[in-house]
Structure formats: structure tokens, C-alpha cells
């Protein structure tokens, strides 16, 4: 002979277990999706900033004479202060690699640590003669 209350309790327990399992899976998936979405949004924001920084290096008339024609000396003289507003205060680094001479130099600002994104392209380093170069702009977010 079975106790009716006992049977009902076992049924309720099964329902409770199913509910706990299902809600655990749901909230676990929700948390994972939220974290992934936030990480991607953060990465996209940093990518956009790196693109903006690279565009500033390639187009700012203070150190270029036309798109992608960079006066290395003028860019070095302008320094990181000139690019800080573009990076919205985040740490950044610009690397200019002269492919003809092999020399590299850097303009950097801030404590470079945390999540980062880089944008890179090719450019001409004006002088006598004009030399080919590669430019990389990296932005960090702590």
C-alpha cells in the first residue's frame, strides 16, 4: 500500500528537479551568450578605434601629404599627444616599419595592457627617395 502524499511528493520532486535543471541550463546559456556578446562588442569597439587611429596616421595633414604619404619626421615630432584624442584616452601604439631600411619606430601612449586590437596597412614614407612602409595601430583597453 502506497501513501498518496508520498507519491505526490515524489511527483513534485521530479518536477522540481526538471525545473532546476532546465533553469540552470537556461541561465547558464544566457550568461555565456551575454559574456560572448559583450566581448565581441568590446572587440568591435577597439577595432573601430584602431581603424580610426590608422586613418589618422594615414590622412592627418600635419604629417602627410595626401593619403598614405607620411612624413616620418613630422609624425615623430607630433608625438603621441597628437593622436591621443583619436584613441579617446585609451593606451595605443603606432609602429612604422620602413621596409627599405628595415628600421622601425614607435609612437606610444599609456599603459599597454589588457584586450587589444590592431589595424595595419601599407604606406609610402616620403623623403628622397620615397620608401615603402607598413603601419600598424594598436589600441588597448584595460
Amino acid at each position: 500500500m502506497r501513501d498518496v502524499s508520498g507519491v505526490q511528493a515524489v511527483d513534485d520532486l521530479a518536477l522540481l528537479a526538471a525545473a532546476v535543471l532546465a533553469f540552470s541550463l537556461f541561465f547558464g546559456a544566457f550568461a555565456e551568450a551575454y559574456v560572448a556578446r559583450e566581448a565581441r562588442a568590446r572587440g568591435e569597439r577597439l577595432e573601430a578605434l584602431a581603424d580610426d587611429l590608422l586613418a589618422a596616421v594615414l590622412d592627418d595633414p600635419r604629417w602627410t601629404v595626401g593619403h598614405g604619404r607620411i612624413d616620418e619626421g613630422a609624425l615623430l615630432a607630433a608625438g603621441s599627444e597628437a593622436l591621443r584624442p583619436v584613441a579617446t584616452g585609451l593606451p595605443f601604439e603606432i609602429v612604422v616599419w620602413n621596409l627599405a631600411t628595415g628600421s622601425r619606430w614607435t609612437v606610444a601612449d599609456g599603459d599597454r595592457a589588457g584586450t587589444w586590437r590592431t589595424a595595419a596597412t601599407a604606406a609610402s614614407l616620403i623623403g628622397d627617395p620615397t620608401e615603402p612602409g607598413r603601419i600598424a595601430a594598436t589600441v588597448w583597453e584595460p
Binding site: D11, D12, A14, L15, A18, A19, L21, A22, F23, L25, F26, A29, F30, E32, A33, Y34, V35, A36, R37
Partner: peptide
């Protein structure tokens, strides 16, 4: 109770799929 549990599980499984699609 069993039917309720199964229904809940199915609904939340669909919700998990939607959430993972949103996140990915």
C-alpha cells in the same frame, strides 16, 4: 506534473537556442 516538467524543459530548450543565437 510530468507533463508540466516536459513542457517547461521544451520551452527553456527553445529559449536556450534563441539566447545562444543572440549571443553568437
Amino acid at each position: 506534473a510530468l507533463a508540466d516538467g516536459v513542457l517547461l524543459f521544451v520551452v527553456l530548450a527553445l529559449a536556450i537556442g534563441a539566447v545562444l543565437t543572440w549571443g553568437g
